[in-house]
Design a protein around this nucleic acid. Structure first.
Length: 466
RNA sequence: GGCCCGUUCGUCUAUCGGUUAGGACGUCAGGUUUUCAACCUGAAAAGAGGGGUUCGACUCCCCUACGGGCUGCCA
């Protein structure tokens, strides 16, 4: 069994799309779960549309998601000489030919076919069987000499056996008249040279697989295992677009979704292994297989994404969580934490992290720890502070001065006060909550007091009682 | 137009000829509770339509409908 080699091959024409990220994830899971290699290749042969900024954005997106690749990212453009070499090799083998047809001639051919109402218009170059010597000095493109009859069969791990009639496939150009390779050639040459054994990519490439198979055959190379995965759709079932909101992985980071949750959610989108729903990346690597990939496009469901992320946040190590949260603040262009906030937030994580689904939510739950006096109460919280409750707070303060500041001690003091006034604990907790956080929805009053400490607690209660 | 792919609860999915069609998110109803969450229990909720094949089809075949992809000297 040869070692498994997968790759992710985006074109750097924009940010890393969420669908592309999932494709990368599947390749990563498959390779990493089987001791194989996961390679990265930037398909930058289209010089017009490729930008270094897009390349940087893609690498950044993969890095944030935690999808590490082996070796350096390969630039497809840098390999253009090798591509040309293979094209000429095909020429020498007689599996390709020089075509002098101009784009105008080809366009005219298509227009004519269309006007005749032909069901399909596969361009048949007159140069396929002509002697190139009759037209020696003109620029030419190199076209694949594809079989005109019979069929080409794709054995796809996801889609099954897919058969194409060769009469549907034209003699595609492998090397343009300016000497640059087309995608169809470059992708095959690179995958072969890089030793790629499994091509896992979007099913928009399924048709291409047939033509690419012809290149493999023309060169006598082993065809890789294909796995064409369905694309991701928006919540409305339509093709994912800007209109649906977040389509770039960077958007998800900026919205505060944790990377582990994104990986888990994206793994389950279009793939399943029994009833497994929530798992770590190590578990995912162990479970992942091509057989588990679904055949129909999946829709994005933000509610489920959030639920998944909440599970991961709750289980995160505090230090790692804090670190990632700070990465979120930066990505979202929010102010960084002060050292004091960092400490308080760190101390409060235990009582807020199992309540938050995203980082902004986590920060909101930890509001009581991040604010400083004077605590400003919102409208609903302010209602809990009436003359009676202020009196109780006043009475409570001296008791807290001498408390040992453990949960048990605080509990007995508060229960005692509540009992003394013949009120339920809830009646006492409300004004406390207002005094400590200025809000009606907070962690437990004990946790808040323990996190902010004795001095700060007493100061806030004194403020509120005044 | 041609070729190719797809279609199970609202959503993600399990099922690989025989199940009361299972799980998860969401929704709804209870419970727990110092608030909000979290958590626990329960409920409603699905095989696109039509033909076959078979003792028996969600599962296999065909047709239709709907959705998607490809059809470039883009990737």
């Amino acid at each position: 069994m040869t070692d498994i080699v997968t790759r992710f091959a985006p074109s750097p024409t924009g940010y890393l799309h969420i669908g592309g990220a999932r494709t990368a994830l599947f390749n990563w899971l498959f390779a990493r779960g089987r001791g194989g290699k996961f390679l990265l290749r930037i398909e930058d042969t289209d010089r017009e549309r490729s930008t270094p900024e897009a390349t940087a954005a893609i690498l950044q997106g993969l890095t944030w998601l935690g999808l590490d690749w082996d070796g350096e990212a390969v630039s497809q453009f840098a390999r253009k000489d090798r591509h040309a070499e293979v094209a000429h090799d095909m020429l020498a083998r007689g599996t390709a030919y020089k075509c002098f047809a101009t784009p105008e001639e080809i366009a005219a051919f298509r227009a004519e076919q269309e006007s005749k109402g032909a069901s399909y218009a596969v361009f048949q170059s007159p140069w396929r069987d002509a002697d190139p010597a009759t037209h020696p000095d003109a620029p030419y493109a190199i076209r694949m000499k594809a079989p005109r009859s019979g069929q080409t069969v794709i054995e796809d791990s996801v889609q099954g056996t897919v058969t194409f009639g060769n009469d549907q496939l034209d003699d595609m150009i492998v090397l343009r008249s300016d000497g640059t390779p087309t995608y169809m050639l470059a992708v095959v040459v690179d995958d072969h040279d890089m030793g790629v054994t499994h091509v896992i990519r979007g099913d928009d490439h399924l048709n291409n697989a047939a033509r690419q198979t012809m290149v493999y055959q023309a060169m006598g190379w082993a065809v890789p295992v294909w796995a064409h995965i369905p694309l991701i759709h928006g919540p409305d079932g339509k093709k994912l677009s800007k209109r649906h909101g977040a389509t770039a992985v960077g958007d998800y980071q900026a919205q505060g979704y944790p990377a582990a949750g994104m990986r888990n959610y994206l793994t389950r989108l279009g793939w399943a292994s029994g009833d497994a729903e929530l798992f770590t990346s190590d578990e995912a690597k162990a479970m992942f297989s091509l057989e588990g990939i679904g055949r129909s496009p999946a829709r994005l469901d933000f509610k489920k994404l959030e639920a998944t992320c909440g599970w991961h946040i709750a289980r995160s190590d505090d230090a790692a969580l804090l670190h990632e949260l700070e990465g979120y603040l930066k990505a979202a262009s929010r102010p960084a934490l002060t050292q004091g906030q960092r400490d308080l937030l760190s101390r409060s994580l235990y009582c807020v992290k199992d309540r938050a689904k995203t980082f902004p939510e986590l920060i909101d739950k930890a509001h009581f720890a991040l604010i400083s006096r004077p605590v400003v109460a919102d409208e609903a919280a302010a209602k809990a502070l009436d003359p009676v409750s202020r009196g109780i707070l006043k009475e409570l303060t001296p008791r807290l001065q001498s408390a040992s500041w453990t949960k048990a001690d605080l509990e007995s003091i508060l229960n005692e006060i509540a009992a003394a006034h013949g009120i339920g604990f809830g009646k006492l907790a409300a004004p406390l909550r207002t005094a400590l956080a200025g809000r009606t929805a907070t962690p437990s009053v004990y946790d808040m007091m323990l996190v902010i400490g004795q001095d700060e607690t007493i100061a806030r209660l004194t403020d509120a009682a005044a």
